[in-house]
């Protein structure tokens, strides 16, 4: 509790991080504005809320996927709150003042956990309200079906933020670690391409997809699959084309496990870096 207090105190007195944190949570709330999108062009009428995206239990899938896209805003806060400790040399000062290295790291991880839980809770509330207004179904059993998307959402965020934490401790500079995050995305893409091209030649039993699920960013992305092709409108089109469209949208236990293992590696790796390095 003391560690969390220390971290929140640091964030609270920094105007920029305060604005970003509130901005992020406001953005989550503002997803409800989406429901008011109405396009009325004579013959073409489009009313987003009536496309079925707010139907229970589909809304859990849709909202967690959409809101998870906002996580990059929050990644900036995570990266800044760690990078600043290096650039202001306050990490050094904190240690001298009697914070242990593990306490320092824990204060950051607790803060991440708190934000992940808050964010998940907000998604839950927003979805519940939107669904309550627009959903065609409101039986209890249907409303609370597919809540595993919320679990996946929180793990997705936690995995992503611990990755940011690790990168910043590794690189020590906020801006560079954000840059490296994007670079990493590209690297994963390139690796995937290379594996698709060559891997089956080297090890015939292994396909590129099988290996690719273990890559951190891909694993984080895999937690919640894109929900668009599940929309009834989309499905109708697919049916008309006659292309039987089946895809598994469930949250798989394996991907949860992969991300949790990565989170553990990132936190442990951050600790080892902190412990080994001289300041």
């Amino acid at each position: 509790m003391r560690l969390l207090q220390i971290e929140l105190y640091k964030l609270w007195h920094n105007t920029i991080s305060k604005v970003l944190i509130f901005g992020y949570f406001l953005l989550i709330l503002s997803i409800s504005i989406l429901s008011t999108i109405k396009i009325d062009l004579g013959p073409v009428k489009f009313y987003l809320a009536e496309q079925g995206i707010f139907n229970f239990p589909y809304i859990w899938h849709f909202n967690t996927f959409m809101i998870a896209l906002l996580k990059i805003f929050f990644a900036i806060i995570i990266v800044a709150m760690v990078g600043n400790e290096y650039s202001h040399k306050t990490l050094k000062q904190n240690l001298i003042d009697g914070l242990s290295k593990s306490e320092f790291l824990r204060s950051k991880v607790y803060a991440i956990l708190l934000f992940v839980l808050t964010s998940t809770f907000l998604v839950f509330i927003v979805s519940l309200i939107l669904g309550g207004i627009y959903s065609d179904y409101n039986e209890m059993a249907i409303i609370f079906k597919d809540l595993e998307y919320l679990v996946a959402y929180s793990i997705k965020l936690f995995g992503f933020f611990t990755f940011c934490l690790f990168l910043t401790i590794l690189i020590k500079k906020a801006a560079f670690s954000l840059g490296f995050l994007f670079l990493w995305q590209v690297i994963e893409g390139i690796c995937y391409g290379l594996m698709k091209w060559k891997l089956s030649d080297i090890i015939p039993q292994l396909s590129a997809e099988q290996v690719f699920v273990f890559f951190p960013l891909n694993a984080i992305g895999n937690l919640i699959k894109e929900p668009f092709s599940r929309l009834s409108a989309f499905q109708n089109i697919a049916d008309q084309i006659g292309d039987g469209f089946t895809k598994n949208y469930d949250v798989s236990l394996i991907s949860i496990l992969i991300v949790l293992v990565w989170s553990f590696i990132f936190i442990r790796g951050s600790y080892i870096l902190l412990k080994r390095r001289d300041l």
Binding site: T90, I96, G98, L99
Partner: peptide, 17 residues
């Protein structure tokens, strides 16, 4: 780190937020 909480130390340049 317990001991450091009981003492006071300044090294080189002052580092604050």
């Amino acid at each position: 780190h317990q001991a450091l909480q009981k003492i006071g130390a300044i090294i080189e340049r002052p580092n604050f937020y």
